[in-house]
Design a protein around this nucleic acid. Structure first.
Lengths: 217, 217
DNA sequence: GTCTATAGGTAGATAGAC
DNA sequence: GTCTATCTACCTATAGAC
């Protein structure tokens, strides 16, 4: 009851403890991303997340007090990735180069981890009620930056006058489609799984259309 | 045990019965669309669907034996609507006219009933496991028809050579985005709800970009 | 920090009176 | 064809031993 400051007193967190914590949290978060993405919030079972993470269920609750808390925690890494893709859009870069690089990066993100990419779709389709104020601020900030880039390009007469926000929506939608609507894409293309060649075709189609339109002059 | 053919024997369905059945099924299906769209399959509660339909829960089970059966039944009307929009794309119509009309129709569908439009997104994001063979065939058929239209336009040198399937994805994605990602659209545009003017801007942005691209010549 | 056992609550589905 | 009462199963969350 007295020496709470000595090393061997009731639990002053050791470096080893901290490492275990971090590693477990990472394992749980990764498992949660997969399960929530595949099943949605209500469809996901904490027991399944625990199984995927190779931990007992109670251990999950030890690190995340509630299902909601764990769910909310899965968004941050995803937003971070999208952010890094958006930073490709820079006013100094030529539109044709920057737009191609952005679309390519975004398609790659969806391909690398389609389940994680769907996490967000799942949440937004439900109305986005679990997106925190920080998440919303994050989105508002990164999109605002990209919108400014589009405006700079317009001011420099490098791209036509167009509503930059709706233009961003279009890029977002076109790339996200290959992750969110994967079953439909597969059905229409009549394949079981998309190959690198399919993603190349998608890239060329999107970039070609966005840059030059489809009409013959 | 003998006269099963006479009118007053054990339950030969009367016209009145049939009407009641049809009306109740319609009410239940409409309520189910709304609730499944907002909450997803697992999040939706039969009790809530019953409340929205203004019927007791057991009555829902009288018409639909399981939750899955009711869920699957909600897709057909939606696919029918999308189908009618796709039929706007006709080889005889000029691309500029047909594409604008299609995008406008698709945006309107999403605006008229965003919840219903999200039903499909919800299901597809989950992997589309509840889409019946008939649903898939339906999608394959309507998309195949539109793809042929694009090919006809290419053959007639009316549009540039482009992969018609990926082009269709792009149109689908760009229009669907305003329904599926509504919370994000609202956040970026800093409004609570989209107005007719916003949909007009979306229409012009999408059509302008698709037809002419964004690059200044 | 780990994990078994279980409490507490809720949802899908059904029995059976009307 | 309608609807109340209820069964059964399962899931989140926690208590408490180790």
């Amino acid at each position: 009851m007295r020496d709470t400051s000595t090393p061997r007193s009731p639990k002053p967190e050791t470096p080893a403890d901290r490492e275990i914590r971090a590693a477990n949290k990472r394992k749980i978060l990764k498992a949660a991303s997969e399960v929530f993405a595949a099943k949605g919030f209500d469809g996901a079972r904490i027991a399944e997340i625990a199984t995927v993470a190779e931990l007992p269920k109670a251990n999950v609750y030890y690190y995340y007090a509630t299902k909601e808390e764990l769910y909310s925690a899965t968004f941050a890494p995803l937003l971070e990735e999208w952010d890094s893709a958006l930073r490709i859009l820079k006013a100094e870069t030529e539109p044709a180069v920057a737009l191609r690089a952005y679309v390519e990066a975004k398609l790659k993100l969806g391909r690398k981890n389609p389940l994680e990419a769907r996490l967000f779709a799942n949440e937004v389709v439900r109305g986005g009620t679990f997106l925190s104020a920080a998440d919303r601020a994050h989105i508002a900030n990164s999109t605002a930056a990209s919108i400014e880039v589009f405006e700079a390009w317009m001011a420099a007469k490098k791209i036509r006058k167009i509503d930059p926000r709706h233009f961003l929506f279009m890029l977002w939608a076109a790339t996200q489609f290959y992750a969110d609507y994967e079953p439909i894409v597969n059905a229409v293309l009549q394949v079981k799984k998309l190959t690198a060649a399919h993603y190349d075709q998608a890239l060329e189609s999107i970039v070609g259309t966005v840059l030059g339109g489809v009409l013959v002059d």
